[in-house]
Write a protein that binds this DNA or RNA. Structure first.
Length: 237
DNA sequence: GCGACAG
DNA sequence: ATCTTGTCGC
């Protein structure tokens, strides 16, 4: 069994899975009513040829969706991509970017699963637990679980079940476009998570927090303090 | 044993 | 995640 460097420690993939099982017990899957004033979106870029990637966190005012802050962390990624162990690969960079944030968000949306994970401890839960903030997992595809057909209209959703257990929902965020997969990250319930993802959608498949974080991680989101956002288009590389 | 498998 | 141009539709 191979071992990987993680925060200065050497862990085998088996140990990484044990760690997840242990941490999953601390995840909180409900909370009071959340009325976010600041919502954060988090994503990470794919590593370049030298293994360097960028983690981005974008802080947005709700419900205006104006950008308050953008923070980036850049570093070499060493942990490989292994389905189910994504958080060990991405969380270090994400947490590094979060440490730079001045405007603490009330809610965070992350590009990955929350508890819709084999050991109920996906990236969004991992980050939520480490930051002790409400997080929502909003992934573009399924890691585990199944669901019935989702209505074609924006807002339609279906339960995501794993061996009969409700672990999340498939949500159509845009009419006739592939659904996204929403799950509890930490300190929120599924109904609220679904509600906030829906309320953060602005005509794109991905909700604004995650969509802008993706652009920021790719270096395609320009933010001038106290001004408005400007997104580059698809041909100015 | 075989297939599936967040980014 | 990435490889990839133009094209169709709102």
């Amino acid at each position: 069994m191979r071992v990987y460097a993680l925060h200065g420690w050497e862990v085998s993939t088996a140990q990484a899975r044990e760690i997840q099982l242990s941490l999953a017990k601390r995840v909180v899957t409900e909370n009071g009513v959340i009325k976010p004033r600041l919502v954060a979106g988090i994503d990470i870029s794919a590593p370049d040829t030298q293994g360097v990637a960028r983690g981005a966190v974008v802080i947005l005012r709700y419900p205006e969706f104006s950008i308050v802050e953008v923070e980036i962390a850049e570093d070499k990624i060493d942990f490989p991509y292994i389905p189910g162990l994504l958080s060990f690969r991405e969380s270090p960079l994400i947490l590094a970017a979060c440490k730079k944030v001045c405007n603490a968000p009330d809610l965070i949306m992350i590009d990955g699963q929350g508890i819709a994970h084999p050991r109920r401890f996906g990236l969004a839960s991992h980050v939520g637990l480490f930051l002790d903030l409400p997080t929502i997992g909003c992934a573009k595809s399924i890691l585990c679980g199944r669901h019935q057909t989702v209505g074609e209209e924006a807002g339609s959703h279906a339960e995501l079940l794993d061996n009969g257990k409700l672990i999340g929902a498939a949500l159509r965020t845009k009419t006739r476009v592939k659904p996204v997969y929403v799950s509890v990250g930490h300190r929120i319930d599924l109904a609220s998570a679904l509600q906030w993802v829906i309320k953060c959608c602005r005509g794109y498949r991905l909700p604004e927090p995650t969509r802008l974080a993706h652009l920021a991680a790719a270096g395609r989101l320009v933010f001038e303090p106290d001004s408005h956002r400007s997104e580059f288009d698809h041909d100015d590389r």
